[in-house]
């Protein structure tokens, strides 16, 4: 069973994603703070990370950058979500090295498809 680490500070959104992925057979753990994100990745060794752009503690972009700088997590698939839909954010996210970028709100089917695609399933 593949593992997903979901880092999202809005509890309701986190609950929705958790429900959708769990139902699809993923094991999901959630985190609501950016500061602990990198450590949690090293602990849990997830197959996929879902990351909000605006997080308390540490921004999503910074987290991606430090994941990409570390050889151990260099190729880890990262799906970034944001409620700021502007193109500027997307460019910044792609520069930082996210694998996939999605704006909120999203359809449940889209997010499921994205996670599956990232996992190569």
């Amino acid at each position: 069973m593949s593992h997903v680490l979901l880092i999202e500070d809005e509890p309701n959104i986190a609950e929705a994603i958790r429900f959708i992925l769990t139902r699809d057979g993923w094991s999901v753990s959630t985190l609501d703070d950016g500061a602990a994100a990198v450590a949690a990745v090293h602990d849990q060794r997830p197959d996929i990370v879902i990351l909000d752009l605006m997080l308390p503690g540490r921004s999503g972009l910074e987290i991606v950058e430090s994941l990409r700088a570390d050889p151990a997590t260099h190729g880890l698939p990262v799906l970034m979500l944001t409620a700021k839909g502007a193109g500027r954010e997307r460019e910044a996210a792609e520069r930082a090295g996210v694998s996939r970028f999605m704006t909120k709100p999203f359809s449940n089917a889209d997010i499921l498809a994205s996670v599956r695609a990232l996992a190569g399933r």
């Binding site: 809005e10 309701n12 959104i13 929705a16 994603i17 429900f19 959708i20 605006m54 409620a83 700021k84 839909g85 502007a86 704006t103 909120k104 709100p105 999203f106 359809s107 449940n108």
Partner: peptide
């Protein structure tokens, strides 16, 4: 505008996801 967009999209996301569920 960017702020408002963010503030509006966040509750929308929950509403849309749960209503689909």
């Amino acid at each position: 505008l960017s702020q408002i967009s963010h503030e509006l999209r966040t509750p929308m996301t929950s509403i849309r996801a749960f209503s689909e569920i």
